[in-house]
Amino acid sequence: MKSKIARMVADQLPQLMPDDQRQWGAAMRSEIYAVEGANSALVFAIGCIWTCFNERMKEMEFKLKLGRYAMVAYMIIVAILLSASVSNIYQTHAPSGMVFIGLMVAFSATAFWTILRGADALIQAASSMLILNLSAYVMLQSTSVGNDVWVNLDFYRALALEGIGIWGALLLGGIALWWLPRSKYAQAT
């Protein structure tokens, strides 16, 4: 079973290597048949996958794709976590539930927009949401509304502050994804 898995993994190695190094993927694949023992074959195959990943990481285009999809994955995870608590919050306090639904939609929409349009979309969405969160935080700091309207004013302040942090980080990530292909580093590699 282990050697079967090792060989299945090894069969993918030429495709996993960068285009100009396919022959090295094929070299690792052919070597798997010489490795003695199922455990050793599996360890060998895992090492080869690691080699492919490292070689790919030296390509700027791959790094950008990885960065982009890591951010998309992060936004989807945040959206899923928010959706898990939305129904409970909505039952307790409908306006708060609506705020969470809005956040969930914002993260999901930004994730899909980033898949479609890349760094530009991430910068646009993150800067808009950053402004929205900053405005919300300023408004909540200066508001004198009682706790009967806002379930917990401190909680909303913390939520806005957290939003500033998250969207600020996503904005920086978007700027990095936009800037890296234009940088001297990209031209040198």
Partner: peptide
């Protein structure tokens, strides 16, 4: 020499050996 022979001789893992060879 083949890759597997070099692995056995050096005790290196494939994830270290192949990047060096490349």
């Amino acid at each position: 020499s083949h890759g597997y022979d070099l692995l056995k001789q050096t005790g290196l893992k494939s994830g270290t050996l192949y990047p060096l060879l490349i």
